[in-house]
Simulated scan of single mutants.
Amino acid sequence: MSETQGSGIPGLDDWDRSDPDPWLALWMDRSLPIAPAAKAALIRDQRSRSRQFLLPIVRPFARLWIVIAQLVHTVTPRWPHAPRFLHASIAFGMKHFLTPDANRLILRHFHLGAQVLRFISDNATPGFHPPLEPMTPRRIDDVRANLFLNHDLNIYNYLIGLNAELDRRDKDIDKVERIDFSAITEDVELEELPRGRFNVIDLQTAIECYTPAYAMFLTDRDFWRATNSLQLDETIGLYAARLTGEEKHLAMIVNGHPLVPHSTLRAGFRLMLHGLSTELLHGFLVHMKRRQSA
């Protein structure tokens, strides 16, 4: 973990005890079960100039546009509704303006989320998997197929389908003695990501920009469902805890209590927490897989 030379992260050679770098401390810290490559990408992205200087300017305007979008949808709840235009715009922005680290974390998130859901159904309802839209994007253009919207639909359809099957079998999610980790893989293969002159926008700033577009170009119901799906981090974490008998990862979940939805104004920040929660749960399962194999 201390090998940071050439990684874009401060190394021990830069350690000034009178002025220690907070990002170096976070890089060296091993308390969170996150893949080193993902952690490095996140730290590089979070310490960028874009996040430091552009995000504080963008965020208040983005939240104002969320309010405007919701006022529009108060009058016309189902208009405008342009998911294909929305995803084409997101893909264009990712390809031409986002950093490679931001794009890597976005595409990686869909893979990890799909693996976690598959892991739960492998162990909770062996032989049954709720039918879901595929979530294995390899390149930015894969986003155009309504990937973000389908991601939100998947989680709700998964919860409904999984629990309907549990009811049919008259069983609960309980601890499994020999856990099936076949769905959990450590590597996510992606195509080469763009590194153009203008690929400088960090992930958090991009999310703050995308959120009001999401609010405007989807129906009111779609946006409400998408933002409140973030709080299902707690639900998925509880499923994993019951199956594994381990609860340590629950302390890492911040998006919780889905029965009491948060305001949509902070959806951008909560989406960052959602991405981190997914990385941590997946990393925790990778750790358990290694331990079981050993």
Rank of each mutant, 00 (worst) to 15 (best):
T205R: 03
I201T: 12
D141Q: 12
L190W: 01
F217I: 03
N146D: 12
P130M: 08
H109A: 04
R138H: 08
G283R: 06
D45E: 02
Q70Y: 02
E234H: 13
H129W: 00
Q46S: 10
L285F: 09
D16H: 09
I43S: 01
D220K: 06
A114D: 13
F198C: 10
L12H: 07
R84I: 15
G11Y: 02
F223Y: 15
P137Q: 01
F284N: 11
V260L: 04
D170C: 05
R195L: 05
F181K: 14
D101I: 14
A294G: 15
I253F: 05
G268I: 03
L147N: 01
G6M: 14
P212Y: 10
D142W: 08
T76E: 09
C209V: 13
N163D: 10
P261V: 06
R44Y: 00
P33R: 03
P20M: 03
I207F: 08
S2K: 12
N255G: 14
R291H: 06
R118Q: 15
L54Y: 07
V254A: 13
I140H: 06
A69Y: 06
V286P: 01
L280Y: 06
W15S: 13
D152Y: 04
A145M: 11
R59L: 11
A294E: 15
F198M: 15
I201Y: 07
Y214S: 10
N255L: 07
G113Y: 03
L24H: 13
L149A: 13
H73I: 12
A183E: 09
L281G: 05
D187L: 06
A294W: 07
T4P: 00
R221L: 10
D141C: 05
L86S: 15
L250D: 06
I68L: 15
E189P: 02
S2L: 07
C209Q: 14
N154V: 00
S277Q: 10
N150W: 09
L280T: 00
A183H: 05
Q292G: 12
R118K: 13
P258M: 01
M1I: 08
L64I: 05
N146Y: 13
L218V: 08
P134H: 06
L259Q: 15
D202E: 06
L276C: 08
E247Y: 14
V116E: 05
Q52R: 11
V75Q: 10
A240F: 05
L193N: 04
K289W: 04
L54R: 04
R242C: 12
K95V: 01
M135D: 01
N103R: 03
K248H: 08
F53R: 04
N228V: 10
F128V: 04
L24M: 15
R138S: 12
L193A: 00
R47H: 14
N157G: 14
C209K: 09
T219N: 08
R290M: 10
A88T: 10
Y210L: 14
L203D: 02
L26N: 00
R63Q: 15
S31E: 08
P131T: 04
I34A: 01
L265N: 09
P83G: 00
H287M: 12
W15A: 15
L259P: 01
L54D: 14
I155E: 12
E177K: 12
E177D: 15
I90L: 15
M94A: 13
K39Y: 02
A82P: 01
P134A: 11
R49W: 07
I184N: 00
G8N: 13
L42K: 00
A124V: 03
L230E: 11
A37Y: 00
P137S: 02
